[in-house]
């Protein structure tokens, strides 16, 4: 009996030394998410731009600084496309005489989890917070913007809708949809990312907006306004 138990005991001890037990959330997330999403910071300095070409999905190693936990748990149970034409370089396009068109039917379906698995994965992802200081340093506080002015600002003055949708019938197809951004993302993340996307992702395809802090906060307020209207 003792001899039979020995391998198990050794395995348990090794797991304890490694800092987790078999079936721990980290293992589960690595298994479920790790083949497409980066769960650790890539070596950007060595890989250069090629890092971006190796991606299959957005990095998640700072998910706890980025997403709202409630949204994550819900998304994992009922996923929906965030990038209407796919996440670069996995763009799904139809080559037509009118130009490149999004090919929604070619988008890969995101993994769908049970309620309990989604909760476990969301809790683990929310623990990944390497950029907590970028969040705490951000000065955004919720404000109000008139919907009409916010729309004008987002579309005409800032040109965000070249790539992003602020409603299902307005805006481009290459960037992530933004009509759900307020419910998906932490307000300080939106603000800090808008101020300097490169701090979060050196290989982002989001240009660094040439905006002062007040202008950034106005845009965040607009995303709040449309998010709460949806």
């Amino acid at each position: 009996m003792q001899a039979k138990c020995l391998p198990t005991l050794v395995a348990l001890c090794l797991s304890a030394i490694a800092g987790y037990s078999h079936g721990a959330p980290a293992d589960k997330v690595a298994e479920l998410c790790g083949s497409c999403h980066a769960l650790e910071r890539p070596d950007y300095e060595t890989q250069g731009r090629e890092e971006r070409f190796s991606r299959k999905a957005p990095p998640l190693y700072f998910a706890g600084n980025k997403y709202r936990r409630e949204w994550l748990a819900g998304f994992l149970q009922e996923p929906y496309p965030l990038h209407p034409s796919g996440y670069f370089p996995e763009r799904k396009l139809r080559d037509t005489p009118e130009g490149d068109m999004p090919d929604e039917n070619a988008l890969a379906a995101h993994l769908q989890l049970s309620e309990s698995d989604a909760a476990e994965v969301a809790d683990y992802l929310m623990s990944l917070q390497p950029y907590a200081e970028l969040i705490t340093q951000d000065s955004y506080s919720e404000g109000k913007v008139a919907l009409r002015m916010g729309t004008l600002d987002f579309r005409k003055f800032k040109g965000c809708d070249a790539c992003h949708q602020d409603s299902t019938d307005n805006g481009g197809f290459s960037g992530p949809i933004l009509y759900d951004a307020w419910n998906r993302l932490q307000p300080h993340y939106i603000s800090a990312f808008l101020k300097n996307p490169l701090q979060w992702d050196p290989n982002t395809i989001m240009p660094v907006p040439q905006m002062n802090e007040q202008a950034v906060h106005k845009l965040v307020d607009y995303l709040k306004a449309i998010g709460e209207t949806e």
Binding site: R41, Y44, E45, T46, R49, E50, Y131, L134, C163
Partner: peptide, 28 residues
Amino acid sequence: ISALLSPLSHGADDASGERLYTMYCTQC
């Protein structure tokens, strides 16, 4: 954070113009 704040000087030279065009320009 410090590492991220540094400019991504790296493989600028590695990425060809065509590769950069695909990444940054083709969406529009």
